[in-house]
Amino acid sequence: MKISELANKANVSVETIRYYQREQLLDIPSNQTGIRQYTLSHLEKMQFIKNAKLAGFSIAEIKQLIQFDSVKDRTTILALSEHKKKDLQIKIQELKSAMTFLQSLVKQCKSSEQPECPILEGLKGDC
Rank of each mutant, 00 (worst) to 15 (best):
D73Y: 11
E44Q: 15
D69P: 13
I66D: 04
K53W: 02
L80K: 13
S70W: 09
N51E: 11
I35E: 07
K84C: 01
Q37W: 02
T75H: 01
K72E: 07
D69H: 15
L54K: 15
H83T: 01
F68D: 00
I35W: 14
Q67V: 03
H83A: 07
K86V: 06
I59K: 11
T33S: 14
K85H: 07
K45F: 02
L54D: 06
K50V: 10
K50W: 04
K45D: 02
S58H: 09
Q37V: 10
I66A: 10
T76Y: 15
D69E: 13
Y38N: 02
I49K: 13
E44D: 10
K72H: 12
G34M: 07
K86P: 00
S41K: 14
K53M: 10
F48E: 00
N51A: 09
L43F: 10
I62G: 06
Y38P: 00
T33W: 04
L54I: 09
K72F: 12
A79G: 03
I62P: 07
E44C: 04
K84A: 02
I35G: 01
K53T: 03
G34R: 08
I90N: 11
A60R: 15
E82F: 00
L80P: 00
Q64C: 11
K85L: 12
I59S: 07
L43R: 08
T39P: 01
L40D: 09
T75Q: 02
M46N: 05
E44N: 14
Q37E: 06
E61Q: 14
T39G: 05
L40M: 06
E44Y: 15
E44A: 13
K84T: 02
G34V: 12
I77W: 11
K45T: 10
S70N: 12
L88N: 08
D69S: 14
F57P: 00
K86S: 09
L43W: 12
V71L: 14
I49P: 08
E61R: 05
